[in-house]
Design a binder for these strands. Structure first.
Lengths: 218, 218
DNA sequence: AAGAGCTCGATTGTTGACAATCATTGTATG
DNA sequence: CATACAATGATTGTCAACAATCGAGCTCTT
């Protein structure tokens, strides 16, 4: 019947719900509500939720319930630090391996960012942005880095969705992406990693700077 | 009643069972057997198992069951690559932060490795070895890196337990650990990361070299 | 009026039973 | 004899009912 397990399916829907903020940070996940919403019973739903607990996207308070995590500034920094580790390693691998197909995919992802930048839709832009970073890790071929990145992207998306309007200066975005791909194409491993790290530091700086008129919590 | 959720508790027991090879790679996890063994019903057990699926320690074949992953040589390389990313980033953080307590913990972990090396017990040795690498990441204070490392250590342990006897030349181990801590203490971020990466490359080389008389699968 | 204790509704945690699927074995058929 | 097919046992997937726990509101006491 199903090619994919229900837990995996529901887990994916929960992730996108968290990304899109239909499940807000700090909110409790009602088993009754969600199971009705997804058309399954509480059993499979709970299995799916345990997956997100393992990812760290949900926090468990025994006998109380499961809650969407809230990201304070320290968490946001941690997310970007972990991303630097994962994406830096992934980009280094690609720079070493020099697979033409990977470079083509990366260029395409760059162009997609440029395209949605012209459209002016902030949601499409951060979609394209994160897609580039996802492709970057996927192309490395590392199953483990890819798995880690999956979670990190959800957490990044949580921040970006919170500040959709404040996401202002994305002109540098395209250029920084292209420079990363350039470094990869040149096979310069050290330069590649440095540019990835700098790009993420810049993105973090823009994020917390845009956020400091808001309260710290997201 | 419980301070910790049962799913979390059972998940931990499953992890150690996988590490200690009482659940062998490729083996199917029988829900009936395990639930009886842990004294819980199938519901909580299945929730715990979904956690390990998310970690990538179990692979799911819908309507067939859950199986312990098998690590071929490519997987082992991937584990060590991911560890280099995670531990390299963690060590860099510590080198930057310069927290005295962290250095003390690391020194202690180094000494523990040296101690269990003298005892000659290979299990105790790899315990101490992995404990050092765990402390390294814990001391960084990054919740996300720590979570990733938790899984990577289980996978590393799977390999080491398979080759308990072949784990021969650990004299360099203590020295390499100490040199990492030295670099951290000196606050030299680049040197720190290089030594972490080299240490893991060496460990990987020793591992696959010891393994190449065996078949590739673990 | 403030606080301790109690009751009740709601939610989570757990279980055993039922349905669906898969692998195996035996059987019939070309 | 080989292959397709069907019956069977075992295992996973799902569900609804039951138990346990929590939180809010009420009452009683001082």
């Amino acid at each position: 019947m199903h090619r994919e397990s229900t837990a995996s399916l529901i887990a994916r829907q929960l992730r996108t719900a968290i990304m899109k903020r239909s499940l807000q940070p700090g909110a409790q996940l009602s088993e009754a509500t969600l199971s009705a919403q997804f058309g399954v019973s509480r059993g499979p739903l709970r299995e799916a939720m345990q997956r997100l607990v393992q990812e760290g996207l949900l926090r468990s308070e025994p006998n109380r319930g499961l809650f969407v995590i809230e990201l304070d500034e320290a968490d946001i920094r941690d997310v970007y630090l972990a991303r630097a580790a994962v994406e830096g390693a992934a980009a280094s691998m690609i720079a070493r391996a020099q697979v033409p197909a990977a470079l083509r995919e990366l260029r395409a992802a760059c162009d997609a960012v440029a395209d949605s930048l012209e459209l002016g839709d902030p949601t499409a832009l951060s979609d394209a942005d994160l897609h580039f970073h996802d492709v970057l890790v996927q192309c490395s071929g590392s199953r483990r880095l890819a798995r880690m990145q999956q979670t990190l992207i959800v957490e990044t998306r949580m921040c970006l969705t919170a500040l959709a309007n404040a996401y202002q200066q994305p002109l540098e975005l395209v250029e920084e992406h292209r420079q990363i791909v350039d470094a990869i194409e040149a096979g310069d491993v050290k330069l590649t990693r440095r540019r990835v790290e700098q790009h993420l530091e810049e993105a973090l700086r823009r994020l917390v700077h845009a956020d400091d008129d808001d309260e710290g919590y997201v």
